[in-house]
């Protein structure tokens, strides 16, 4: 394997793909932005970004063939990192403005509006990561940049899945590490030095 892991930031029209690319390059990846499903399928790592509405992101991802790419990669054990709405769509479904949209259903759980006095949850927050977390190694005390109004508020623990939580009005899922599929509700690419540490941890994991 090359010294630098190859990473494709999947471009399906949602998310700040350039920032993801820039921060991954800075963290040591050979990163490119692409909507090419073959490239996305063969890279060492695939990043699925996403901002805006759950339903719009899901529709965009399906149009671009990203749903199949992600499913194929996960069943083959190839690493995928979802960011923000790119994390939310890994869950069973999302409910926004009364509309219930099916997600990729790689995890059970529903993405719902947070109950908090101020929304969106916008800014730098702390997280509670499990001791076994590889994603947060060396960065458990840091703050990360969140921008979202919806999140997974209840989940079932499993021995193989590491769940990191955060709080805004209530406790929600801030990150998941589950075999080849990792994801963050916050934006590591916008989380300064702390975010760079996380991306570096993911790159180290996918280089194994």
């Amino acid at each position: 394997m090359a010294a630098k892991p190859s990473v494709v930031v999947f471009d399906y029209g949602f998310g700040n793909v350039r920032s993801c690319e820039n921060s991954l390059i800075r963290a040591g990846a050979d990163a490119t932005v692409s909507s090419d499903v073959d490239l996305a399928g063969s890279a060492d790592g695939l990043v699925v970004p996403g901002v805006g509405a759950f339903a719009a992101c899901m529709a965009g991802l399906r149009r671009a063939g990203g749903d199949e790419v992600v499913a194929n990669r996960i069943s083959a054990g190839q690493p995928v990192l979802g960011i923000c709405v790119g994390m939310q769509i890994m869950f069973a479904n999302g409910v926004e403005h009364g509309v219930d949209t099916a997600g990729l259903a790689l995890w059970s759980g529903t993405v719902e509006r947070l109950a908090a006095p101020v929304l969106p949850h916008m800014g730098w927050n702390t997280v509670v990561a499990p001791r076994s977390s590889q994603l947060f190694a060396g960065a458990t005390e840091q703050r990360f940049y969140f921008v979202h109004s919806y999140a997974v508020r209840s989940w079932s623990e499993s021995s193989t899945t590491r769940i990191t939580t955060a709080e805004h009005g209530e406790t929600f899922v801030a990150a998941v590490e589950d075999g080849p599929l990792w994801a963050t509700q916050f934006h590591p690419e916008k989380s300064g030095v702390a975010g760079a540490q996380l991306l570096g941890n993911w790159l180290a994991e996918i280089s194994k």
Binding site: N16, G192, G195, A196
Partner: peptide
């Protein structure tokens, strides 16, 4: 903006 986004990793 493009040069800033390539070098500065905060919003």
């Amino acid at each position: 903006v493009s040069r800033t986004a390539a070098e500065v990793f905060i919003p």
